[in-house]
Nucleic acid binder design. Structure first.
Lengths: 221, 221, 221, 221
DNA sequence: GATGAATGAGGCTTCATTCAT
DNA sequence: CATGAATGAAGCCTCATTCAT
C-alpha cells in the first residue's frame, strides 16, 4: 500500500486506447520481457560505471541496438533508472511490510528485517548499487522525489519497531532509535560495495554476523 | 611513511626547478592560499552535486572568475579532486597512525580510531562526501589508484587491532575482523550523508552512541 | 487543363496496373475515405503547428494508429502535404477559371475572384494556413515546383483581368497590375491567420469590406 | 515606453560583477560587435530557410566556427531569434511612436506609418521575413509571449489613429478600424516575400503605390 | 593571473522511415 | 491494414580544455 508513485515512463503511444485493445496473439507480456531485459542491462551498467558515466550508447550497444532505438522503449535515460529504482523500492517495501505484519516480537522483527535487507543484496545488487552511488545526484531531480518519500516510510517502519523493542525491554533505552536505524540501514546497503556473491560469506552469513554484532556487540561479556 | 603519491597536479611550469621553486615576487604563500581557497570551493561543490555533475564553470563562477582561468591554478578538473582526496587521506592516515602509536589496549585503540573517524566528519565533510559518492567513478581512473592502496593500508591498521583485541580476550572470537572493520568504516563514513553539524547530536555524541552499540550491542543484558 | 502535376504520392503498389486498379474486395471507395480522413487530420495539425513541427507520430496518434501504419496510406510525410496543397490548388484554379469564363466585366470579374478567394478561407482554412506558413520551406523542394507554376498561372488570370479593367476605363491607369494583384492576394490569404469562422464577421462580410476598400479606398470622397 | 522585455539571453558569465569591472582596454562594445555579426548571419539564414530548417551548424559554418562555439555567445538557438525579433520590434515601435508624436492629422499619420513600415522592408528584411514565416511556430513558445504583447500595442496605435480619422471625417465611417489595420499590416509585411531591393520598385515606390490604392481605391472616379 | 573566444568530442534525444510478423 | 521494433541521420547543447591577448 504505500505511495511510491512510479512514473515508470512507458512511451505514450496509444494513450487513447480504451477497453481490451491490443492483446491479439503475440504473447501478452512479451513486450515487457524485452523491456525488462533492457532495464536489466542498463542496471548492470549503471551499477558498474555510475548513472552519469553510463551513456545511452553504452546501454544500446550492450543490447546490440542503436542508441535511438532505446527510445522506442523508454522516453529518457532517467526513465530507465526510475524503473530500476522504483521496482526495487516497491518490492522491498512490501517485503518489509510482510515481515512486520507477521506480528513477531520487536527483536525478531528487527532480525527479520535485517535478514531481508541482506537478502536483497544479491538479487538487487545493481539497483542497490545505483541507489548508493547515484542517490545524491538523482535526489536532486523532481522526478525522484518519490524516492525520498518512500525512504521516509521505510524509516518509520524500522524506528517504530525499535521503539517497541525498547518499550518491551528487549532493546536498551539509551540508544537513539532513529540514529540506530540509520546506522543499520547504511551498514547493510553500503555492503553492496564490497560484497561479492561468490565470496567467503554469502549474504545469509553476512546477515547473521551482523545480527550478532548488532544485538550483542563485539565485546566479550 | 606510506605511498600516497599525490600527483597533486600543480601546473607544469618550472618543472625542473629544485629548492625554492615558486617564490617569484608575489607574496610567498599567498598564491597557495588562493589555490587552497579554490580547492575548498570546488570541494563544496563536488560534495553538493557530485564530481561529474559539477562543471569547471560552476567552480569558476563560485570563485568569481572564468572557467579558463582555473587552468592557471590546476591542470585539470581531476587534479582538483585529487588534491581534495589526497589531502584528506594523508591527514587521516597519519592521525590513525598517531592513535595506534600511543600503544593503548586494543579496545581503547579501536575506540580512539572510531572517535577520530567521527571527528573528521565535520572538518572534512566535503572530502568524505566526495569519497562516498564518487569513489566508484574515480577509482576507475589510473590516477586514483593510490586511493585504493591507501585504503588497504588503513584496513590493515584496523584489522590488526581487532585481531589483537581478539587475542587478548577483549573482543569475541566469533566475529570476522575484516568484515567487522568494513562495517565500522562504512557506518562512520556513510553518516556524512545525513549528519548535520548543527543537529541534535554533534559528532562526538554520534561517536559515543556508536561505540556503545558496537561494543555492547543494542540488546539489554 | 493546367500543369499541376500532382505527384500525389499514393503508395507505389500496383504501379503498372491500368484500368480498375485498387478495387480488391474491401468497399470500393472506403479506402479512399479513410485516406481522406487522414489527410484532413494531418492538414489540421500542419495548420496548427506547422509542417515541420508536426511529426508523423502526431498525425498517427490523432488517427489512433501507430506512425509506421501511416505508411500504408502515404509514402512520405511530404506526400501528405502534397495532397493537401495540390487539392486546394486544383480546386481554386478551376473555380477561378469558372469565374473568368462567365465573361463578366473586369470589375465584376475581380469582385467575383475576391469573393471566391475569401470564400475559400473557411472550407480550406487548413490548406491555406499551411500554404501561408510553410510555403517558404516547401517551395525549396523539387517536388513542389508545381506550386510555383500554378501560382504563376493564377497570377496571369488576375493580372490580365486588371489590365482589361484599365483598358475599359474601370480601373485607374496609374496602378501597377502585378503589384496590385499581389497585394490583393496577400491580403486575402494572410487573413487566414486571424480569421475566426465564428467571429464578428463571416468570410462574406470580410469580402465585402475588402472590396469596398479596394475599389474606393478608405478616404471619404 | 512599452514593455518589450527582451530576454535577449546573453550568457550569464560574471553575473556577480560589481561596479565598472571589465572595460580595460579592449574596445568597449567590441564583444557585442562580434555578437551582432553572428546575429546578422543567423537572421539571413533564418529568413532564407526558416527557423526550424536552419540548424545551429548552418549558422556556425556561415560564421566559420564550430557549432558548439556559438554557445559562447548565445545560450540557445531560440535566444538568437529572440534577439533578431526583439531588436526589430523595439525599433519599429519607437519609430511608430515617433510618427504619432508628431501630432499630424490622422490621414497624414497613417500615411507616415505606412511609409515607415514599407521603409523597414529593406533594412529589416530578414527579421520581417522570420516574423512572417515563423511567427506561427514561435508564438507557441512562452519565451515569445512578449511578441504578442508588442503586437497588441502596435495594433492600438494604428486603430486609434484610424478611429480619429473617422471622427474628423477623413476616413469613411463604414470601414472597420481593426479589420482595416490588419489588412494594411499584413499587406505591408507580407510584401517581404516578393519584394526585391534591386527590383522595379524600391520600397518608397511601393509605399506610394499602396497609399494611393488604400486611400482612393483602384476604381476610377 | 585573467579574459574571451574557440575547439572537439561527445551527450541525450527526435524523427521519418522500413520491415517482418 | 496494423503493430512493434529498429535504423540512421541529424539536431541542439554541454563541457573540459587551450591559447592568444
Amino acid at each position: 500500500m504505500t505511495t511510491t508513485s512510479t512514473n515508470s515512463g512507458r512511451p505514450k503511444a496509444n494513450e487513447g486506447g480504451g477497453g481490451t485493445r491490443r492483446r491479439g496473439k503475440g504473447s501478452p507480456a512479451l513486450a515487457s520481457e524485452r523491456r525488462e531485459h533492457l532495464v536489466k542491462l542498463a542496471a548492470e551498467l549503471f551499477a558498474e560505471k555510475g548513472f552519469q558515466a553510463t551513456t545511452v550508447r553504452n546501454i544500446a550497444e550492450e543490447a546490440g541496438i542503436l542508441s535511438g532505438s532505446l527510445y522506442h522503449h523508454f522516453d529518457s535515460k532517467e526513465s530507465i533508472v526510475d524503473e530500476i529504482l522504483s521496482g526495487f523500492f516497491t518490492e522491498i517495501m512490501s517485503a518489509y511490510q510482510g515481515v512486520i505484519d507477521q506480528g513477531m516480537s520487536p527483536r525478531d522483527t528487527i532480525a527479520g528485517l535485517v535478514r531481508l535487507a541482506f537478502g536483497t543484496l544479491e538479487p538487487h545488487r545493481a539497483a542497490i548499487t545505483v541507489m548508493q552511488n547515484d542517490w545524491n545526484y538523482l535526489k536532486g531531480m523532481d522526478r525522484f522525489a518519490y524516492l525520498t518519500k518512500s525512504e521516509d516510510e521505510v524509516e518509520k517502519m524500522w524506528v517504530d519497531t525499535i521503539k517497541a523493542g525498547q518499550k518491551d525491554g528487549s532493546f536498551r533505552e539509551d540508544i537513539d532509535p532513529k540514529l540506530t536505524y540509520r546506522m543499520i540501514r547504511d551498514t547493510v546497503w553500503v555492503a553492496v560495495r564490497w560484497f561479492k556473491p561468490g565470496g567467503r560469506l554469502n549474504s545469509k552469513g553476512l546477515a547473521e554476523h551482523y545480527l550478532k554484532v548488532m544485538f550483542d556487540g563485539i565485546n566479550t561479556h
